[in-house]
Write a protein that binds this DNA or RNA. Structure first.
Lengths: 131, 131
DNA sequence: GTTATTGCAAAGGCTTTGCATTACG
DNA sequence: CGTAATGCAAAGCCTTTGCAATAAC
């Protein structure tokens, strides 16, 4: 039926009304959104949704691999629904995030890691400012 | 005289007692420290130093280019006194930060940036976990 | 009917602010 | 002396938590 609902089910997540609205805002296409933006977007169709539910759901989606959390800087966190390997270009003044193809940087060779560690992820952030 | 004091002067920073203690903790060698760690370290020799002063001073040192602020994740920020180009390896469980040589990643070609933007910095974070 | 999910409001943690006091040149 | 820096406590912001009400299966 609804592909988003199926995606939630596939990830082992009960597709409640609130979660479906959050998924609609976030998972329909690759986007970068703050928690507040997600709340506002979800409230368009589900006005009663609470901050707590948004935060719970964002953490749940991250844990299930539907989202990535991206620490833009000390006080900006965005949730990224682009699942393909990619990096980020960030306007340091506005906080706007844009995707970069993962191409320019080689993958990490796991053998180069310190002994006893395994790779959990690589994050590349290119910060720019308007000239 | 004192090389750290001279460095502060060279950066256009009045070397007050508190700032000298913060510089001693942070700038004497390349380290990664949280604001709280800086406060504790500075209080060893300047017990009256306040959180507000530490935060003010960290922001000042960053603005003057003596430090870089590194957003490890949503709730971990460290200040990095390593000034040479380098990237970071982070234990996602402990938050421990280690430097990586900048080598494996080529420098960004400024011509590749979107028009109207200039490069402000590149951050590479390799996240690992204990196996 | 049970169990999971939600909403609310309060609590939390870290950072910033306002302002009087103190140190500095 | 005049300006800049500091300390304190309060305020802020975003996020999490506790718990009763609600919805899902």
């Amino acid at each position: 039926m609804n592909p988003l609902t199926e995606r939630l089910r596939g990830a082992g997540i009960s597709p409640t009304r609130q979660r479906r609205e959050i998924a609609r805002a976030l998972l329909a296409r690759p986007v970068h959104m703050t928690a507040e933006q997600v709340l506002n977007a979800a409230r368009v169709r589900a006005p009663e949704i609470s901050r707590a539910t948004v935060y719970n759901t964002l953490a749940l989606f991250c844990a299930k691999g539907l989202l990535r959390e991206l620490a833009v800087d000390r006080d900006r966190v965005v949730y990224d629904s682009g699942l393909h390997p990619h990096h980020h270009l960030i306007d340091i003044d506005s906080g706007e995030v844009r995707d970069l193809p993962a191409g320019p940087w080689p993958a990490i060779d796991p053998a180069q890691l310190p002994p006893g560690f395994e790779l959990a992820g690589v994050e590349v952030i290119v910060r720019v400012r308007r000239r």
